[in-house]
Nucleic acid binder design. Structure first.
Lengths: 333, 333
DNA sequence: AAACTTCGTTTAAACGATTAAACAATTAAC
DNA sequence: GTTAATTGTTTAATCGTTTAAACGAAGTTT
């Protein structure tokens, strides 16, 4: 990478100080500078293809116009979809995005946060893993602008954008009930993540609301990031009960796929409800209900909150968006 | 974001110069510094939670330890999968990654390149769109370290990591022929992208090799980024010929889905071959052959080439990996 | 004509690190 | 006991910007 053109080069060539060049190129001191000089500086800058060194600028003005995005795994469709929206919003406001995947591990998340802060990002968008409370609190007290997405910590009054998980799960289960299902199982997680617990509570609330009793045997829990191995077993468990389930609520997009794969292989046809749309829904015979998150709104809102937080100090905002229940009816055979 | 701790703060507290602090914290001048002072500096640094300002460091040493990743669309599974691999490799070498999506548009790609270069990235990983020749050439002459992925420009001797597209397409078509298919259509693109033309040539080579004639009516071309609308029409066209096709090669992962959706809806059962694995393959009744790219190898190789290029000057490397043909046999009904 | 303004530009410090060179104090060499 | 080498630390320049303050020259007031 050969030496790049700096303000100094332009200044020398034109025969003025670097200050003047800086003023001209930033359109400062309007009218104070001789028009002739302005034109000359602009012409020389263009002819040398001058591009300001953002690193130097960042150091001086103490602003990098960079935001850090931390997701669980950038290759997960939810994360990459969100990343794309954040990217577009960020760029349209003059920011660039650096990203990292935590793999749902708090230590990796902390490492990423440190790395990003050392790189002087102006703010962070974080999809926090379990046990991130301490980290979040530390960000908060250090007054680093950030916004949580998808997950939240009820006891911490920090910026967050989520969906109303309780309502979402409830409406999904209500739909199954409406379809006449009586023994509705749930594939959930062994986790302290509040948004997942909210979904569990929504499931229970729906059952209670319909006068069905909540049966612990119908609730199977798997480990985060172990979906591929554990979900098929969990589903098998629900199907082999003395009174097997006639429907299943999958509490996340990562459980749906292994679950459906198993059901499909076993040729079992029961009611299905899940979170987030997947391509496969178009190719599955059975009808499926799923919660569609307003991902675009979420991304836009998150970045809006973050940018407001970066520029002005602003009270924390907790947003809970309404998600939509979508029914994919069985297509004609 | 409140004021951060700098070398100066530590120096003041300990009562030494910033130079000494810098030496200690970077383990320079081993043994030259009084052990007592070393310990004191380290202790104070730790107690103040000192974190070096990477921006200042970058400006001084002219290295940001950042690489820029430009893909077509980060929300596309191929891109996000690649992003994840690049991320892991980059972080394990002390680099962070900034990314952007070009949407297959050369102007956006140029804008991203400029933005990244202004931010002084040490190198670029680029999945170049059509007509990127000029841009690539300019990167090359400006001696900016970069590596192309997935696509390449045969007349430009620059770093690139791709698969052997000709062989891949040929083997996929050969498989269809082996399955007894006689009229094999292809959904391709209206494009100048060499890797896609290679795939077309592979298709033709396979037909010729089997003594089948290449029929222009069996080749439908769609526009990049217009797959959802145009592919169903193209498939419909192939099916409504006086002599309809009995198999189709989909030349990209973005054409497979809309194509299968249409075939599925029409209940048509023909031979299918495509590029890249999709979740839906597990749920489709018909057997499918697809080309599986060694994405991990590609990502690792790309970053390896890039980092070698950043540190030493090194001759350009063109890598063509072998892709694997996978057969998903029809599962028992 | 002395005292202000205004205009157009330059000077110089600053951001937070790195690092070659200088330096004073001690120890070693002859 | 003068010179030389070693040790431990500081000085100061530098990276490429930004920007408050200073500045000389010309114009305006009195």
């Amino acid at each position: 990478m050969k030496k790049r053109i700096s303000l100094k080069d332009i200044a020398q060539k034109v025969g003025v100080s670097t200050a003047l060049v800086s003023y001209v190129l930033n359109n400062r001191m309007q009218g104070r500078i001789r028009e002739e000089v302005v034109q000359k500086i602009k012409k020389v800058a263009a002819s040398l293809h001058y591009q300001p060194n953002q690193v130097a600028k960042s150091l001086k003005i103490n602003k990098t116009n960079t935001i850090g995005l931390i997701v669980a795994d950038i290759s997960n469709p939810y994360s990459s979809g969100l990343a794309r929206i954040i990217e577009d919003e960020a760029y349209s406001h003059g920011y660039t995005v650096i990203f990292g995947s935590s793999d749902e591990r708090i230590e990796k998340c902390e490492l990423l946060v440190d790395t990003f802060i050392n790189r002087q990002v102006d703010g962070l968008v974080v999809l926090p893993p379990e046990n991130a409370d301490k980290l979040i609190k530390s960000l908060h007290t250090r007054k680093i602008p950030f916004v949580l997405v998808d997950r939240y910590f009820p006891e911490l009054p920090v910026n967050s954008v989520c969906i109303n998980n309780h309502e979402a799960a409830k409406s999904a289960v209500n739909m199954l009930i409406q379809q006449g299902k009586k023994r509705i199982g749930m594939i959930s997680y062994n986790t302290t993540l509040t948004h997942l617990q909210d979904r569990e509570k929504g499931y229970k609330a729906a059952l209670k609301g319909a006068g069905l009793k909540v049966d612990a045997k119908l609730i199977k829990k798997v480990m985060l990031s172990k979906e591929e191995e554990e979900v098929p077993l969990a589903v098998a468990g629900l199907l082999s009960l003395s009174q097997p389930v006639d429907a299943i609520l999958f509490i996340s997009n990562k459980t749906v796929l292994p679950g459906l794969r198993y059901l499909n292989a076993q040729q079992v046809d029961i009611g299905i409800a899940g979170f987030d749309k997947t391509e496969i829904f178009d190719f599955i015979q059975m009808p499926i209900s799923y919660i569609q998150q307003p991902l675009h709104q979420i991304g836009v809102a998150a970045l809006d909150i973050l940018l407001k937080n970066i520029s002005k100090r602003q009270k924390s905002t907790q947003l809970f968006m309404e998600a939509q229940l979508v029914n994919k009816v069985q297509f004609a055979d």
